[in-house]
Simulated scan of single mutants.
Amino acid sequence: MLDVEALDAYYGKSHVLEAVSLSVGGGEIVGLLGRNGAGKTTALRSLAGLVQTRAARLAFDGADIRGLAPDRISRAGLVLVPDYRGVLAGLTVEENLRIAARARSPFGLDEAYQMFPRLEQRRANSGAALSGGEQQMLAIARGLMCDPKLLMLDEPTEGLAPIIVDEIVDALKLIRDRGTGLSVLIVDQNLDVCLAIASRHYILEQGRIVHAATSSELSVATEIQQRFLGVDAA
C-alpha cells in the first residue's frame, strides 16, 4: 500500500528527516514512535505532500506520488488527520462531516455515528462547543469520510481523558477488525495505545529510523523503550 525508501525532508535549509524507509501494507495498522522532536509529525506531513522532500521511492497504492500536490495525494486515498484537528468551529458536527464526505467512501454518516456515538448526540452542536476529545473524534470521523485507503493519525489521543482515549482506541480497533482493507499509520506518545491497535512499529530518533519491531517484540523490549521512547521500567 505504502512503500517509502530513503525519504529526506527539509524545512528550508534544515534537514529534518534523513533516509527514512518504511512500509504499510493493505489493511495494516503501523505505529510511528519516538520522543518529541524526533520527526514523527514531519514524516506524516511529508507523506501528505506538505513538506519539501526527496526520496528514492515514494509509492502509494502502486503509484509514484513524489512531487504531487497535497490535494492530489489526499484524493488518491492517503489522508492525514493532523494533530491540530482542524475542526471548523462555526459549523455543526454534521456539517463538518458532510463537507468532507466523498460519495464512494464506505464510511458515511451512519458509520461515523456508529463508531463515535458522542458525535451523533452532538450532531447539531457547533465545532466550537465540543470538548477536545469530541473534536478529535470528529477529526477522525471526517478523515474516514474522505474515502481513505490509508489514514494517517497524528497524536489522536494526546491530552485526552482516559475514558475518551478508550473510546478512540475502540473505534480504531473496529476499523482494524471490520475487514475494509483500510490501512492506518499512527503517531502517538501513548505507547500502550499503539501496542493495542498496531501490528508493528517504527521508532524515529533525530529524523532517522533507529528500530523496527512487531507489537509483541516491542512490548517486552524494555531497553529499547527506555532508550528511544523514554518509557520508565516497571
Rank of each mutant, 00 (worst) to 15 (best):
M1V: 09
L2D: 09
D3N: 14
E5R: 15
A6H: 14
A9H: 09
Y10A: 02
G12A: 03
S14Q: 07
S14D: 10
L17N: 07
E18R: 15
V20H: 11
S21T: 14
G26A: 15
E28A: 03
V30H: 06
V30L: 07
L32Y: 08
L33S: 08
L33Q: 11
R35T: 06
G37V: 11
G39Q: 11
T42F: 04
T42P: 05
R45T: 08
L47M: 08
L47N: 08
L50G: 12
A56G: 13
R57V: 01
A59W: 09
F60Q: 11
D61R: 02
G67K: 05
G67C: 07
D71V: 13
R72C: 00
I73G: 05
I73E: 06
G77R: 07
L78P: 04
V79S: 05
V81I: 14
Y84K: 13
R85E: 04
L88I: 14
A89C: 02
T92N: 04
V93H: 13
E95A: 14
A103M: 01
R104C: 00
L109H: 07
L109E: 06
D110S: 12
E111I: 00
A112E: 10
Y113I: 01
Q114V: 01
R118W: 00
R118M: 06
L119A: 11
R123W: 02
R123P: 03
N125K: 08
A129V: 00
L130R: 10
L130I: 04
S131I: 09
S131W: 09
Q135S: 11
Q135M: 13
Q136W: 09
A139P: 08
A141I: 05
R142W: 10
K149D: 00
L151Q: 09
M152K: 11
L153I: 04
E155W: 03
P156Q: 03
T157P: 02
E158S: 14
P162K: 10
P162R: 12
I164C: 04
I164S: 05
E167R: 14
V169R: 12
V169D: 00
A171D: 09
T180E: 13
G181D: 05
L182W: 12
S183M: 04
L185M: 12
L185W: 07
L185K: 09
V187A: 08
V187F: 08
V187Q: 10
D188W: 02
D188R: 01
Q189S: 15
N190W: 01
L191V: 14
C194Y: 00
L195F: 06
L195Y: 10
A196F: 01
A196Q: 13
A198Q: 08
H201R: 06
Y202N: 07
I203M: 11
L204V: 03
L204A: 07
R208P: 01
R208G: 02
H211Q: 13
A213G: 07
A213D: 14
T214V: 11
S215D: 06
S216Q: 15
S216C: 03
E217K: 12
E217L: 07
A221K: 12
A221M: 05
T222S: 13
Q225M: 04
F228Q: 03
F228G: 01
L229D: 04
L229K: 08
A233V: 15
